[in-house]
Amino acid sequence: MVISKENLRINDEIRAREVRLTADDGEQLGIMSSRDALALAQEKQLDLVEIAPNAKPPVCRIMDYGKYRYEQQKRDKEARKKQKTFDIKEVKLRPGIEDHDYTVKFKNAVRFLEDGDKVKVTIMFRGCELSHPELGEVLLKRMAEELKDTVVIERAPKLEGRNMIMIVAPKATK
């Protein structure tokens, strides 16, 4: 049962004349006036909560509203915990990078990917290096080729201003 918090009406806020009532244990109590339903809820020291406002007549349930909200917040918090958030880590290279420096940057990218993060590989061009963007593309393709078994290329190498950017993400594990 998914109820949005915005249109949830309780007790005196319910405007319908007649409501279909269910008890807190799920038992159907039938259709009755909202005044009678509210009196029944107050008799049990619980709240009357409109759970399906668009139904004809609207469906209301007798429940402890405070307890329901608490449970809902707990479920929402648990769902947020289980969500995986991706950080984007960046590895910056230059077109004339030496092999050892490239290896260090490559190892950093692999470590980021193993941690479950996306990696943005950036080639930074300075001065007249920009007249040879193919050098940057060769570097990015080399890195993509070396990582091909463990990554998905989310964004192919593309020149943006003075930088060439490629984004890779770890493959989903089953």
Rank of each mutant, 00 (worst) to 15 (best):
R9K: 07
R9M: 08
I10R: 08
N11I: 02
N11T: 05
E13M: 00
E13S: 04
E13P: 00
E13D: 01
I14M: 05
A16V: 02
R17Q: 13
R17S: 10
E18L: 12
E18H: 08
E18Y: 13
V19L: 09
L21C: 01
L21Y: 02
T22A: 13
A23K: 02
D25T: 05
Q28F: 14
L29H: 03
L29W: 04
G30Y: 03
I31D: 08
M32L: 11
S33Y: 09
S34G: 09
R35D: 15
R35M: 13
D36K: 13
D36Q: 14
A39R: 15
A39Q: 15
A39H: 09
A39E: 15
A41C: 07
Q42P: 02
K44W: 02
Q45Y: 04
Q45N: 14
Q45A: 14
Q45E: 15
L46K: 12
L46H: 05
V49D: 10
V49I: 07
V49H: 06
E50M: 09
I51Q: 00
A52I: 15
A52L: 15
A52W: 09
P53T: 08
N54A: 15
N54Q: 15
N54K: 13
A55Q: 12
A55L: 14
A55G: 08
K56G: 10
K56V: 15
K56I: 15
P57E: 07
P57G: 04
P58G: 10
V59N: 08
C60Y: 00
C60A: 07
R61K: 14
R61N: 12
M63K: 10
M63A: 14
Y65I: 10
Y65Q: 11
G66A: 14
K67L: 11
Y68W: 00
Y68H: 04
R69A: 11
R69P: 05
R69Q: 14
Y70P: 00
Y70I: 12
Y70G: 05
Q73N: 14
K74N: 05
K74E: 07
K77Y: 06
E78T: 01
A79K: 02
A79N: 06
K81L: 14
K82A: 07
K82I: 03
Q83T: 02
Q83W: 08
T85E: 15
I88R: 00
I88H: 02
L93Q: 00
G96F: 11
I97N: 03
I97Q: 03
I97G: 00
D99G: 01
H100T: 11
D101M: 13
D101I: 10
Y102D: 06
V104E: 03
K105P: 02
K107R: 13
K107L: 15
N108R: 12
A109C: 03
A109I: 05
A109E: 04
A109D: 04
V110F: 00
V110E: 11
V110S: 00
R111L: 08
L113Q: 05
E114W: 08
D115W: 01
G116N: 02
G116D: 10
G116L: 04
G116H: 01
V119F: 04
V119H: 03
K120D: 13
K120F: 05
